[in-house]
Amino acid sequence: MTAHPRIWHLVLILSIFSTPLVIMYVYQVIDSIASPDPGSLIPGEIDLSNWRFLWERIDMGRPSIWMVTFNTFIFASTTAFLVTLLSTTAGYALSRLDMPGRPYFLGGLIILHAFPTITLIIAIFIILQFLGLFDTLLGIILVKAALELPFGVWIMKGFYDTVPWEIEMAGVQDGASRFRVWWELVLPQVKPGLAALLIISFLSGWSEFVLPLVLAPGSSTQVLSTYMNAVIQDDASADFGLFKAIGMFYSIPVIVIYLVFQKQLMNIYGGGTKG
């Protein structure tokens, strides 16, 4: 597009709307490392005491941050791994394999993809109690993975759909079984999809809040989101410096992934998908 002389109008309007966000981002970083100065917005001296949660318990009865971080990592990575694994096979079956009832599976997938899973949380809460998985990491991992699955299958099916049929036909013609064709010829073509799904479901697991809050409320299964929420809820003095430092710590993987994969992430989310 040619440059337009009145483009600064747009820039001005956009800037006005963006200001609150930018202020939030900037002070999120500043306040986490500067001593708070009540009633003023000019940061005080550099003060790392906000980060004390890393080396001491901020109050009694709260689990150590490292255990919480470990829980979060296990939760997010296992979920991402499970979702990717099951989506990789199920997506291929739905995209390519001739089997009875395929249209119904596809229709069901679309419905599930749109269906707001959070409405089921009460029933899931009770199911986990029946199964004895309530307040366990395994329980929320299974639930989170299952709830992310329709999205994952949908994404992977989309990636498989772009692999030319002729590649598979050629493989079959070359004498390879359907399984071998999938493993050796098709799977390498959808590697970008696997990576994208791994990243997205890891991010989703890392950010998840409601599921651990409801299904794993105990302190031994706390994850960073519920830990941070509990610190905010329990602290009457609203120590934003501490909150923001925890927030910074919590969002490190998100920020790193965002900086590295921003463009790819936008593309994936832009494909008309849930996220």
């Binding site: 096979t89 199920a90 291929y92 001739d98 599976f105 029933a123 899931i124 299952a146 699955l149």
Partner: peptide, 27 residues
């Protein structure tokens, strides 16, 4: 491909049954 399809889909279908269909019914 029928066998392969069933094998590939069933883990997903099982988890969907436990955490989608069952919860809907139980709700």
């Amino acid at each position: 491909s029928r066998m392969l399809g069933i094998g590939f889909l069933s883990p997903a279908i099982i988890s969907v049954c436990i955490f989608f269909l069952l919860p809907v019914l139980l709700t």
